[in-house]
Design a protein around this nucleic acid. Structure first.
Lengths: 337, 337
DNA sequence: TTCTGGCACTCACATGCTCGGAGTGCCAAT
DNA sequence: ATTGGCACTCCGAGCATGTGAGTGCCAGAA
């Protein structure tokens, strides 16, 4: 791959991202310091098109990068654009006053949306290797009991169960019994401990199993790893052409499961760095035409993913820089915690 | 207001909602059983236009309803369309397996979006007149403590506070003290009780006030009344014309505060029934062109609002019916629950 | 070999035009 | 009060035209 051809591709990508119009040979030499004639560029562009990095929307039009072109651009041509001072400051001040994990996640997602001017996604940190801190039972109704589980990272899980005609005294008894059985244990150990507990209790085993099963289910359940979204209005910043394709993206954004897999898969391939999925590389057809820039963040015991979704013709250098910076900063923030 | 003119207005609204094209006199008499000639209808339409219920996009085009026209339609002409059997069944099955309040709210908002094919909003039930059930302190970190408040409706509120070098024993002591002070009290009474407690404690008052102030703040804080949104992709169902105006709506949907006021104001004016805000009636300029159909729901001690946002040319009879049905059903579900 | 200038060629797109048709307003007659 | 008739308006589809940006290719220069 010729050195100048790479220059040309880079120039085309940056110009196209800015103008969103096919870029021609003449405009290219004018806007960039390429010390050759348009004709030479034309030859290069023809080659790049043959190799699949560019396409022409129609004969006698300028070139547009293909997904493959963007991929090369991202892999080899990008000099990561450092954040501006204002942006750095925004990151630190934005998170400064965060109170709890909820607050951190919500602030982060809004921050990321604002920095990148795109749709931001932040997954809740999934607490691994936690221990159970407390079990609480609250009588909501003669027949309903709320079970609350608190772990050592401050995560709270809750579930309602149906327990006909219970008394406060009965709940008090269960609360003590459950707490003695699970406090300080990891979820899986707590599960075993509960199994043992249910075997010991012989009186009214049916009733006992209602409660124990519920707590057990909560222990083994996948910690609810929700994804928070912000910056959806930014989708309309990309002009009419993209707006007509907005529907599928909005649909994907409402599907938590899709988002989780999206982030998870992408980050899994690039552990420790920012992952980029461009257009067709994306496993979900409805996200053809969009790119994902994602990264893991957080300390190892509360690790999660975050990222940004936008059209393939996004400004990759800036976006990657922003995602990286936010991931690092939030990670440090969580670690200090 | 002439009886037939009302018929004409109704016919124009229903036709326009279906076709989204200006409706003319001839098409109108053909599609509806109006036993008069097009000329007569023309006269009526001219009058209706004079009175501000209709407008013509241009001189020789059919009429479309104005906001005022929709208003009259909604106020006087609507025979609420009863839900189909399938829809009734959807409502009951959708909510059947709901576990906790979180689950109920999320299922409700998705249900509403699906039934109305529009953007649905559901506010979390704000527990009024509750009593405090439990206060829990969890040490997250040598310097950080998580405070958790549980009330009698099962609502959970949490906040992190900074408490340098604390021990488990110290937290245990505080937990007992706090619980003795607030359990069973309403938030305002609990607040007073805490004030008294802080006066009694003389040893290390600075440290005491860190904890007590935090709990106090949580008690008086407006119960975090979040709004959950679903069905955003439905905004694209309304054709290209509406899609260009989608931006402002998306922005409003990201602003929790705006949504809360929107729902709250609308419902406040029509307590106990479905409220409709049409286009310009809406206080937020960015929601010009959209209508809101909202209703309160839930038992009095856990009352909240829900609703639907869509273009002014929505199908009001069906939407109103759906909102009403869902509000009633979820209300009953919460009351039983 | 690589680059360049020149040249013929190709489309998309804007402009200007016509024309049909849907829809109106008005009026005289019922 | 309603109706049929009629002249009028104006949108939008369809077509022809011209312009310009951009291309591919080739022969000659470096």
């Amino acid at each position: 791959m010729d050195d100048r051809k790479l220059m040309v591709l880079r120039a085309i990508v940056t110009d196209y991202v800015q103008t969103r119009e096919p870029v021609g040979s003449k405009a290219l030499v004018e806007r960039h310091q390429l010390d050759v004639s348009p004709a030479t560029i034309r030859n290069d562009m023809a080659v790049l098109e043959d190799e699949g990095y560019l396409i022409q929307p129609h004969t006698s039009a300028g070139r547009i990068p293909t997904d493959k072109g963007y991929r090369l651009f991202v892999d080899r041509l990008t000099t990561i654009k450092p954040l501006s001072g204002a942006e750095r400051r925004a990151i630190t001040t934005f998170l400064a006053g965060a109170a709890d994990i909820d607050d951190i996640v919500h602030r982060t997602v809004r921050l990321l949306a604002q920095l990148t001017q795109q749709v931001a996604l932040v997954q809740y940190p999934a607490a691994r290797s936690t221990t159970i801190r407390h079990v609480e039972l609250v009588s909501l109704h003669p027949d309903r009991v709320l079970v609350i589980l608190i772990d050592s990272t401050g995560r709270i899980d809750q579930r309602t169960l149906i327990l006909p005609v219970h008394t406060d005294a009965e709940l008090d008894g269960w609360r003590d019994r459950l707490n003695r059985a699970v406090i300080g244990l990891t979820p899986s150990m707590a599960g075993e401990s509960l199994t043992k507990l249910s075997e010991e209790l012989v009186e009214d085993p049916a009733r006992a199993s209602i409660i124990i099963d519920a707590v057990h289910a909560m222990l083994v359940a996948d910690p609810s790893s929700a994804v928070v979204v912000a910056g959806v209005p930014n989708l309309t910043r990309y002009g009419a052409a993209y707006e007509t394709a907005i529907g599928p993206v909005l649909e994907a954004l409402e599907e938590q499961v899709v988002l989780l897999r999206l982030l998870g898969d992408a980050v899994a391939e690039h552990p420790g760095d920012v992952a980029v999925r461009i257009g067709q590389e994306n496993p979900y057809v409805s996200l053809r035409g969009t790119s994902l820039v994602a990264s893991g963040y957080g300390p190892s015991e509360a690790w999660a993913t975050l990222g940004v979704v936008g059209p393939t013709y996004m400004d990759y250098p800036s976006t990657i820089a922003a995602v990286r910076a936010v991931a690092r900063y939030v990670g440090r923030f969580l670690a200090e915690g």
